[in-house]
Design a protein around this nucleic acid. Structure first.
Lengths: 181, 181
DNA sequence: TGGGTCATGTAACCTGTTACATGATTAG
DNA sequence: CTAATCATGTAACAGGTTACATGACCCA
């Protein structure tokens, strides 16, 4: 998966591994966490597959920089992946795994679990609220207005998911307290 | 993660690897996908850690069955995990990764993406609707009513997530068509 | 007796994580 | 000059996937 994320970024422009990491940390962080070690490794395999190249016509401004750019094969692969029907339906939720077995704990403890969840949800809501303007601001500086729309969609997902999560946690707390009476 | 799922199930009762697989396939399938190969491997490491044992007092009804049961250490570990604050916030969403770069495709294609998503969402909604009664039915046959409540919560999450997903997909389709005019 | 499903695995691989090492460049 | 941060990696591990192998049991 990270492979295609990297391809997507290199499709915008030539980048070094370090820059890729920065973009993930600053823009894609709320739906993907990328380790530098993995980024550098993936860049090697992408190069072996001929999807990216480190031979760029624009030489780096620093000696210790190693910029990569996407190849035509890489662009083809990016589109193939985007068109691919089989969108993994993000199964495997550690959150629900835990919830499923939460009946083993005392009422107080399971209540605390959902309260902590709501707390964290509120925190990310604050982050996402700021993200809206950041995306708008950034998109104003690039030519392709269309792309910014899809970036905003991922942020909107975050907002809606958060709202849902908070509602769900509340619902669970009610279920627990109703039984307790 | 699967380790603790297995511990949770063995905490209900003694089970073979095959039975564990069946429970995952029939009850936990909409939030976790477990391969048999992994289940058998995890059972070995759980045994090595002393959290489960294959030495059971109740001998299997079939020669080729190998039932496992949870140990006191296993139960302690299960509770430790349930109480653990650091609930991984399920980052890394392949769905959003794809959405982020969807601007590379034609409007028609990106619209098709969200329509397909809504279609799949409606399908799982139907499955989850049936799941409600299944959980109720099953819980009526066991003594611990309390546990069934948490099972229902995971189903409710599924329902709410699905609704959210459908709304989001609709919202995205609107964004695309509004720009297209 | 032969096909289905019950039942247990092994091996290779892929993706992501954790911990660590190291050199180059820049700002104070 | 020195500390921060820019920049590139390696090694070992953990968790999950894919493909395959194999034997027991049951029912028609």
């Amino acid at each position: 998966m990270l492979k295609h994320g990297i391809l997507g970024l290199l499709n915008y422009r030539q980048m070094t591994g370090y820059e890729i990491k920065e973009v993930f940390r600053n823009s894609l962080n709320y739906f993907w966490d990328a380790q530098t070690s993995q980024i550098y490794r993936e860049l090697q395999t992408l190069r072996e597959r001929g999807w990216v190249t480190d031979e760029t016509d624009v030489p780096p401004d620093r000696a210790n920089k190693k910029p990569f750019s996407i190849t035509d094969e890489g662009r083809a692969e990016l589109c193939r992946w985007l068109r691919d029907e089989s969108v993994r339906t993000d199964t495997n939720s550690p959150l629900l795994m835990k919830t499923f077995f939460l009946g083993e704990l005392e009422e107080g403890e399971s209540l605390a679990f959902f309260r902590a969840l709501r707390e964290r949800s509120r925190e990310s809501a604050a982050v996402l609220a700021r993200a809206r303007d950041a995306v708008e601001e950034y998109s104003r500086r690039i030519p392709e207005r269309k792309k910014a729309m899809f970036w905003q969609m991922t942020r909107d997902f975050g907002v809606m998911y958060n709202e849902m999560l908070e509602k769900w946690a509340e619902h669970c707390e009610e279920m627990i307290t109703e039984v307790e009476e």
